[in-house]
């Protein structure tokens, strides 16, 4: 590629040191150029650094922040009761009339560390009360078929008022003592003083004509207040 004098534009031979027209030294401009350009190339190529700074920022600030937010929300009280979510369906949807349906006490038996309820009886009576006697400590329990057809088993206790009796009225579960109401399907509080203390759900499964409740969570159950 041809070289030209930087001052007068005369073409200079590849090996030329001076312009033959105006005498401008070839090396001079190159030397000035080197000093003006010094550091610039490194600063341009260093722009990669700013990119990695961004990833560093993401790594140091954003990721822990996102994790923090996630953990915060994970630890919030569950919006739905996970035990009720897992309960088995035993019937088509059930509609309760707006008149109180009281609990019917039934007999249960215990086999292989399980409390066994007859499913057909529960289906027929819809809302039953029973007890588990743990070496003298009597724990009240209840079972009912919810509006969406799930069998729900729970400790039959509203701790603030010490009541063990409830009734179903329409789509609500009602404490016989304080009148607090909960939604029948979810046990979410609706009205009254003890909304935070619905019957504490205990998991159960259905095998053939048996509703089976492991006794461990019943024995380990402690009043919430």
């Amino acid at each position: 590629m041809a070289k030209y004098c930087t001052q007068c534009g005369t073409q200079i031979e590849e090996s030329g040191k001076f312009c033959v027209e105006c005498g401008t030294p070839v090396e001079q401009s190159a030397a000035v150029g080197q000093s003006v350009l010094s550091g610039k190339r490194e600063r341009v190529l260093g722009s990669n650094k700013s990119k990695s700074n961004v990833s560093l920022f993401i790594a140091v600030i954003i990721v822990p922040l996102a994790l923090g937010i996630l953990i915060f929300f994970e630890n919030l009280p569950a919006l739905s009761n996970p035990i009720i979510d897992e309960q088995p369906l035993v019937a088509e949807s059930v509609t309760y009339p707006p008149v109180p349906r009281q609990m019917k006490t039934i007999e249960t038996r215990v086999r292989e560390n399980k409390i066994i309820l007859p499913l057909d009886v529960v289906l027929q009576k819809k809302f039953v009360a029973f007890e588990f006697n743990n070496n003298g400590r009597v724990i009240p329990l209840l079972a009912y078929v919810s509006g969406e057809g799930k069998v729900i088993t729970a400790i039959s206790m509203c701790e603030p008022c010490n009541s063990t009796r409830f009734h179903i009225k329409g789509e609500q579960l009602v404490c016989n003592s304080c009148g607090t109401t909960w939604e029948l399907n979810s046990l979410d509080g609706l009205s009254g003083a003890c909304q935070g203390y619905p019957p504490d759900a205990i998991p159960s499964i259905v095998v053939g004509n048996e509703i089976q409740i492991e006794i461990a969570p019943v024995i380990n159950w402690k009043p919430r207040v």
């Binding site: 350009l37 610039k40 190339r41 341009v44 190529l45 260093g46 722009s47 990669n48 700013s50 990119k51």
Partner: peptide, 20 residues
């Protein structure tokens, strides 16, 4: 200055304009 300016990434090219 021996930089292939269209082989640079966009940030580097912005810095190229600023510097050169």
């Amino acid at each position: 200055d021996d930089l292939d300016i269209y082989a640079l990434n966009p940030e580097q090219r912005a810095d190229f304009r600023k510097e050169y």
